[in-house]
Amino acid sequence: MKNTFILFAVLAVATISFSFTTVQDAALKKSMADGKSVYEGLCIACHMNEGQGIANVFPPLAKSDFLMKDLDRSIKIMIVGQQGEITVNGKKYNGVMPPTGLDDKGIADVLNYVRNSWGNKGDIVTVAQVTKVRAKK
């Protein structure tokens, strides 16, 4: 009886975990698709179609240590822009990125796209996370 209960409990937890993961994966895929559309209209001119950036001018987003290290910083940059020297993958960049003008959903979608493309792998970015950072800016 005890073994049956343990087996049932393990199966229940596994089923719930699988269901949650499936829902989260679907939400990430939808957000990434929306983010790709926004990226292609707003970001691609500087960061290029594969996130490679332009050498010595605009930093790469592909396999970017800077992008992936601090999510709140990435959100803030999308809200207020970036100016001054930064180091990305060991190379210095000193340009200007204007604020994107995107709403919280747009920022979450673009970040989900760029943080999960071109060799990057990140957790899902939620609208609530963006809203929280925007409130602190």
Rank of each mutant, 00 (worst) to 15 (best):
K2I: 12
F5V: 07
F5Q: 02
F8A: 15
A9D: 02
L11H: 05
A12L: 11
V13D: 05
A14Y: 07
I16Y: 14
S17V: 06
S17A: 15
T21N: 13
V23K: 13
Q24F: 14
D25Q: 13
A26L: 10
A27C: 09
G35H: 05
K36T: 13
Y39C: 09
Y39N: 01
L42F: 02
C46A: 13
C46F: 10
M48Y: 11
Q52H: 15
G53K: 13
G53L: 09
F58Q: 01
L61Q: 08
A62F: 11
K63G: 08
D70F: 07
K76Q: 12
M78I: 02
G81K: 00
Q83E: 11
E85Q: 05
E85T: 00
I86A: 03
K91G: 05
G95K: 03
M97P: 13
T100Q: 12
K105H: 08
K105Y: 08
K105M: 08
A108F: 10
A108C: 10
A108W: 12
Y113A: 02
N116R: 10
N116S: 11
S117T: 12
K121F: 00
G122K: 03
D123W: 04
V125Y: 03
A128G: 09
Q129A: 13
T131M: 13
K132M: 08
V133C: 12
R134I: 04
